[in-house]
């Protein structure tokens, strides 16, 4: 089943076309990697799928439903979650509280309930704490739950963002350069976590520059260049695609 279908998607910023007439789809349960040189339009694509800004033209179907015109928070309620290339940790909160915000769409206490915390509200709060701790355990941060999020080292902050994003139990998870800045051990842990998430039934779409990781975990790869889709295929197909090699290494790369 196709969980995400992007067709004829275009986004222009003034005279610059960041994403041009893009078509691709993601099947449920897949791990899809989007790669491409800097400025290829990868993050723009993510921002379009999560409705940070509207596309100039084209359509995005999530579970056969058009999501164009929705707001970023409505997208989350539909079951799409994401992490960010530049960390967007809530520095004013503890590690646990960061993940607890991730349970926002799965809980419903409003202002009145918050003012008068009746037993039902307290039960919901306990459930939020429990499931948030489980997500922290998944990424190996359970013992740091009560620390200030801003005190975590970079690698752990990246893991925290993943825990926070999966706390809402999304169907589609978008990871924007999850391995960037991680050391080899942390990258191994990340790969394990991504496999665990896939086994839980979460479809994963990721942007990544670390080719070794991409080739290992992706079922399929979409290659972008200057806003256009250059190629799409299995890691093997992509590795042997002349156009892709040209885009990455330059034309001369082909001659040797």
């Amino acid at each position: 089943m196709k969980i995400l279908e992007v067709s004829k998607l275009t986004k222009s910023f003034g005279g610059v076309t960041a994403v041009n007439d893009m078509n691709f789809s993601v099947n449920s349960g897949e791990i899809i990697a989007v790669i491409g040189p800097n400025g290829a339009g990868k993050t723009t694509l993510f921002n379009l799928i999560t409705c940070i800004y509207p596309p100039t033209s084209g359509s995005i179907l999530f579970k056969q439903k058009e999501i164009r015109g929705l707001t970023a928070d409505q997208i989350a309620h539909l079951g799409i979650s994401r992490t960010f290339q530049n960390l967007q940790i809530f520095n004013n909160m503890s590690v646990l509280e960061n993940v607890m915000v991730g349970r926002h769409t799965k809980s419903k206490t409003g202002l009145l309930g918050a003012i008068f915390p009746l037993p039902a509200v307290q039960r919901e709060e306990e459930a939020i704490v429990q499931s948030s701790l489980e997500k922290l355990a998944l990424v190996g941060l359970a013992d740091k739950a009560l620390e200030a999020a801003s005190n975590l080292p970079y690698g752990e902050q990246k893991m925290l963002e993943i825990a926070r994003a999966v706390a809402m139990e999304p169907e589609l998870l978008l990871l924007d350069e999850p391995a960037a800045g991680l050391n080899p051990t942390e990258t191994r842990d990340l790969v394990e976590i991504i496999y665990k998430l896939r086994d839980q039934g979460i479809t994963i779409l990721l942007v990544e520059h670390d080719m070794e990781t991409v080739m290992e975990i992706a079922d399929r790869i979409v290659v972008l260049n200057f806003g256009n889709k250059l190629a799409e295929g299995t890691p093997y197909e992509i590795q042997n695609n002349r156009e892709v090699i040209a885009a990455y290494l330059g034309e001369e790369g082909l001659s040797c």
């Binding site: 999560t50 940070i52 707001t71 970023a72 928070d73 997208i75 989350a76 309620h77 979650s81 994401r82 960010f84 967007q88 940790i89 809530f90 520095n91 004013n92 909160m93 509280e97 607890m100 915000v101 991730g102 349970r103 926002h104 769409t105 809980s107 419903k108 206490t109 409003g110 202002l111 309930g113 918050a114 915390p117 509200v121 919901e124 709060e125 939020i128 926070r164 994003a165 809402m168």
Partner: peptide
Amino acid sequence: SRVGRALRSIHGSEFAARSLGVDI
């Protein structure tokens, strides 16, 4: 509460808050 966390998330990062479903 859930509301207080949503409020603080807006202060922390509006981007992230919205991506987690907070109608800021």
